[in-house]
């Protein structure tokens, strides 16, 4: 398949207080970015269970993006510290599962960083286009 023509699909988990609001700001400011990202709202990046991410990859998501408040600015004081540690561990685990770690990104995006959000989506979409479509691993639930 010609890679450049396929729009990759990015499953994104955004914390309600910073990153989701940042994505809203990109909207209010009418900043355009590729139609690749679909945002799931979570209260905090610390709410993102690595299993959700693995499930997305399992079902063929081309990329997963987790975004939260900048370290130190978590609405719940410490949630993003936990997600930072958890998700760096997950990143190392991805290779073991045969998932290219470039498909997985964690970004700190504040409520005032609409442009940074749009930029992140652009960059990631570009990289995923280069990588080509991901493989769907299984259709059955791992639960």
């Amino acid at each position: 398949m010609p890679l450049a023509e396929v729009e990759p699909k990015i499953v994104a988990f955004f914390c309600n207080w910073c990153s989701y609001a940042g994505a809203d700001l990109a909207g209010t400011s009418r900043i355009q970015y590729p139609p690749s990202v679909r945002i799931i709202r979570v209260p905090c990046s610390g709410r993102v269970n690595p299993r959700f991410i693995l499930r997305a990859f399992q079902l063929g998501a081309d990329g997963v993006l987790v975004a939260g408040c900048h370290p130190g600015d978590c609405h719940y004081s410490t949630g993003n510290y936990f997600s930072r540690r958890r998700l760096s561990l997950l990143r190392r685990f991805l290779a073991y599962l045969g998932i290219d770690e470039r498909r997985f990104r964690v970004r700190w995006i504040s409520a005032s960083e609409g442009p940074r959000f749009a930029e992140t989506v652009k960059e990631m979409t570009e990289e995923l286009r280069q990588l080509g479509p991901a493989q769907k691993v299984a259709a059955t639930s791992v639960d």
């Binding site: 699909k9 499953v11 799931i40 209260p43 997305a56 079902l59 998501a61």
Partner: peptide, 16 residues
């Protein structure tokens, strides 16, 4: 409100 079941369902619906 953001239960495992809800988030799981969202991921599955997105990856359809």
């Amino acid at each position: 409100g953001f239960s495992n079941e809800q988030l799981w369902a969202e991921v599955e619906a997105l990856c359809l």
